[in-house]
Amino acid sequence: MTDHTVHTEHFDKEAGKLGMWIFLFTEMFLFGGLFLVYAVMRAQYSEDFHTAAEELNTFIGTMNTVFLLTSSMTVAMSITAIQRNERRLALFLVSLTLLLAMLFMVDKYFEWSHEFEYGVYPGSDVLKNMPHGELLFFGLYFMMTGLHALHVFVGMILLTINFIRIRKGSINQENFLLLENSGLYWHLVDLIWIFLFPLLYLVS
C-alpha cells in the first residue's frame, strides 16, 4: 500500500484482498468477545473450569486440530497450484481441503452427540445441577465451538464454489482472487481453532 495510488478502471485485486483482511479483523473481534468472557470467567472459577474441561475428549480435539492444520496447508497449496496453472492439482487440493473439513465436522458431530447423550446440552437439567463454573464452561464451550463450526460450514460452501469455478475455468492463473480470499477465510477458521483447542481441551 503505497501512499500514491493510481485509480484504475478495471478490477483491483489488492482492494479485494485488503477488504478481506479487514473483514477477518472483524471476525477476530467477534470471537475476541467470547475469549474475553472466557478469560473473565476462568479467572473467577478456575477450579470448576479444570474439572469441566477434563470431561472433554482430548483425543477428538487433537484429531480436529490435525485436520484443520492440514486443511490449511492444502488450501494454501491450491493457490500455488493455480498460480502455476496446474488445474488438476488445484482441484485435487481443494477437494482434499473439503474432505478434511468434513472429517472435522463428523468428529464434531460425534463429540456433541456423545455429550448430548449424557444430558450435557444447553439448558439441560444435568447442566443446571452442576456447579456454576462448570455450567458456564459448557455454555462457553457450546457457544464457541458452535460458532466456530458455523464458520467451518460457511468455509465449506466457499470452497465448493471455488471447486466449481476452477472446473469451469473462471478461476485461473490470471484471476484467482476468490480462491485467495477463501483461503484467507479458511486460515482464520484455523486460527480461531488454534486458540480454542488449548483453552477448552487442554486446561485440565
Binding site: 500500500m1 503505497t2 485488503l18 483482511w21 479487514i22 479483523f25 490449511s72 496447508m73 494454501a76 483461503g183 484467507l184 486460515h187 484455523d190 486460527l191 488454534i194 486458540f195 483447542f197 488449548p198 483453552l199 487442554l202 486446561v203
Partner: peptide, 29 residues
C-alpha cells in the same frame, strides 16, 4: 499453552496467509 498457540498463529499468518510478502500497512494493521 497460550504461548505455543501464539507461535502457531504467528506462523499461520505469516506463511499460510502470506503476511510476510504483504504491505507494511497490512503488517502494522
Amino acid at each position: 499453552a497460550l504461548l505455543i498457540a501464539s507461535i502457531k498463529v504467528a506462523t499461520v499468518i505469516s506463511y499460510f496467509m502470506h503476511l510476510r510478502s504483504e504491505s507494511l500497512f497490512l503488517k502494522v494493521a
